[in-house]
Computed example of a mutant assay.
Amino acid sequence: MSDPSGLHPADWAVWRAFSTTGRSIDRALEQRLQHDAGISTADFDVLRSLAEADGHRLRAGALAESIDWEKSRISHQVRRMAERGLVERADCPTDARGTWVVLAERGADAFAAASCGYVEVLQRAFFDRLDADQKQALASMADRVADALDRVAVAPR
Rank of each mutant, 00 (worst) to 15 (best):
A153W: 03
A146I: 08
A28K: 10
A110G: 05
F126S: 09
K135M: 12
R106F: 01
Q34T: 02
R57K: 14
L33Y: 08
E70Q: 12
D147M: 11
Q134P: 04
A62P: 00
D128W: 02
A90V: 06
A51M: 11
V154S: 06
V152P: 05
L130Y: 06
A51F: 10
R48C: 02
P156W: 11
G38T: 03
V145H: 03
L29E: 02
S19A: 14
A28Q: 06
F126M: 14
R129P: 05
R57E: 10
G107D: 07
A37K: 06
F126C: 15
P156Q: 11
E70D: 13
D36Q: 02
S19K: 10
A146G: 07
R144V: 08
I25M: 05
S40Y: 09
D54T: 07
V154F: 11
R97C: 07
D131Y: 04
Q136Y: 01
R16F: 14
A146R: 14
V119Q: 03
A142G: 07
R151K: 07
E88L: 09
R16K: 11
L50P: 03
S72M: 06
A114M: 09
D143C: 04
Q34V: 03
D131A: 10
S40T: 15
R16W: 12
R97T: 07
R151Q: 15
G38P: 10
L58E: 09
R73K: 12
E120V: 02
L33M: 06
H35A: 10
A90F: 00
Q134N: 08
A37E: 05
Q136P: 04
D133W: 08
F127Q: 03
Q77T: 14
S140W: 11
R84H: 05
A90R: 15
Y118F: 12
V152I: 15
R129G: 02
V46W: 00
L63W: 03
Q123G: 06
D91S: 13
D128I: 00
S49A: 15
H76A: 15
R27K: 13
K135W: 12
F127V: 12
A64Q: 01
D43V: 09
D95Y: 01
M81Y: 06
D91R: 15
R84D: 12
G107N: 04
D43Y: 07
R59Q: 10
V119G: 04
Q31N: 13
K135R: 15
C92K: 12
D143K: 14
A17S: 09
S40A: 07
V78C: 02
D109S: 02
A51I: 00
I39T: 01
D26C: 03
K135Y: 12
R57F: 01
R57W: 07
A62Q: 12
Q31V: 10
R80K: 09
S66Y: 02
D133A: 15
G85H: 05
Q123D: 12
Q31H: 07
H56V: 08
